[in-house]
């Protein structure tokens, strides 16, 4: 239920993203989903990859500031209101969402949403009660 996201500190300098993605490529790491939070001076790159532990080690080797963050992934129907349903459940349960990002699977009629919330266990409980489909980490890694 809980999956690992790579969180990487990226200074706003030319070429940084290229270097990071090249390091991942060299280590045969596949990126499943990504988002960047950007500020004036730096960004935080958040990645869901197929081999988070190996990616972490490779990036650390390159002296990056990188950490693994626990997030949850849900599958929502890919039609209007699909995401709203899941977000409403968390909101009603008083669970704050720090950030989220999504990607669609063209083969299926489903969108996957990565959620970073304050309390993973509580969020999982609430989502399960509402019959929202939670993804297992292997499902995403091996997609």
């Amino acid at each position: 239920m809980i999956m690992k996201q790579l969180s990487i500190f990226v200074e706003n300098k030319q070429g940084r993203l290229a270097e990071i993605t090249e390091t991942l490529a060299k280590n045969s790491v596949d990126i499943r989903a990504l988002s960047i939070a950007d500020t004036t001076d730096y960004g935080i790159l958040r990645l869901i990859v197929n081999k988070p532990e190996q990616a972490l080690a490779a990036l650390k080797e390159e002296a990056m500031t990188v950490s693994l963050t626990e997030v949850i992934a849900v599958a929502v129907p890919d039609h209007p209101g699909g995401l709203a349903g899941a977000v409403r459940i968390l909101s009603d349960a008083g669970i704050g969402i720090e950030y989220m990002y999504a990607f669609v699977n063209p083969k299926k009629d489903t969108a996957f949403v990565i959620l970073r919330v304050e309390d993973n266990t509580k969020a999982i409980d609430e989502l399960k009660k509402a019959n929202i489909q939670l993804m297992r980490d292997e499902d995403i890694y091996t997609m």
């Binding site: 969180s7 500020t39 500031t65 950490s67 720090e98």
Partner: peptide
Amino acid sequence: ETTPEMFSDEVRRIE
């Protein structure tokens, strides 16, 4: 320089 101790995946915390 950033260190693993002060780093966070949330901008809010870094700020």
